Amino acid sequence: MTGDVWTELMVHLMVLLWSSGVHCETAKVDLVMLVDESGSISSNDFDQIKMFLVAIVNGLNIGPDAVQIGLTLFSTTPRTEWHLNTHQTKQSLLRAIKQLKQTGGDTNTGKALEHILDIQFKPSMGMRPDSRRIAVLITDGESQDQVFLPSKNLKHNDIEVYAIGD
């Protein structure tokens, strides 16, 4: 994807997030970013995704009583990079984003969606009972596994899912 495409996607995502109240100083939001790191993502595109994540973090009020961000990378197997309560400051999140490394593999989006429901959106991992729950899926292509049931399970658990893709 070109830089212009990522800029457009970031604007769309920010509009979605802002319209859901994420920008408010008093908004408690648990946001899990689900990022495709499969082999179909070029290293340049992965760098663009990291820049996109930096822009998202910079646009939000981050903290234990505001927006918390967890991140899971996925390809053949999902991998939690950090939980919702791991990074409680903007600076800490920005350092963690800079350290992200791509491993490649297949695009198993359904498995990744199941993973964030089973692992990330849990009170023991920082999810707050009074927060709005949002998952943002960033991918470049079609999943190689089934996504319908995992998506339905997220919705059933009051988790809003936004997908950004090429």
Rank of each mutant, 00 (worst) to 15 (best):
T2E: 05
D4V: 08
W6K: 01
E8A: 08
L9E: 11
L16V: 11
W18F: 11
S19V: 12
V22H: 04
C24R: 15
A27I: 01
L31F: 08
S38C: 05
S38A: 02
S38H: 01
S38L: 03
G39D: 06
S40I: 00
S42D: 09
S43F: 15
D45P: 02
D45M: 05
D45A: 14
D45S: 12
D47R: 14
M51T: 10
M51V: 11
M51I: 10
M51D: 11
L53H: 12
V54M: 09
V54K: 11
I56A: 11
V57L: 07
N58V: 13
N58E: 12
G59E: 13
L60Q: 06
I62L: 03
I62C: 02
A66Q: 09
V67D: 05
V67I: 06
Q68S: 03
T72F: 00
T72S: 02
R79Q: 14
T80E: 13
H83M: 13
L84F: 10
H87L: 05
K90R: 14
S92T: 06
S92V: 04
L93H: 09
L94A: 06
R95S: 06
I97V: 08
I97N: 06
I97L: 06
T103A: 13
G104A: 15
T109L: 04
K111M: 12
L117C: 04
L117A: 10
I119N: 08
M125R: 15
G126R: 08
R128I: 07
P129I: 11
D130S: 03
D130H: 08
S131N: 06
R133S: 10
V136H: 03
V136F: 00
V136M: 01
L137N: 07
T139F: 00
D140V: 00
D145Y: 05
Q146D: 09
F148M: 13
P150E: 12
P150Q: 12
S151R: 11
L154I: 09
H156S: 10
H156R: 15
H156K: 13
N157C: 04
D158A: 13
D158W: 02
E160N: 12
I164F: 04
I164E: 12
G165A: 10
D166L: 03
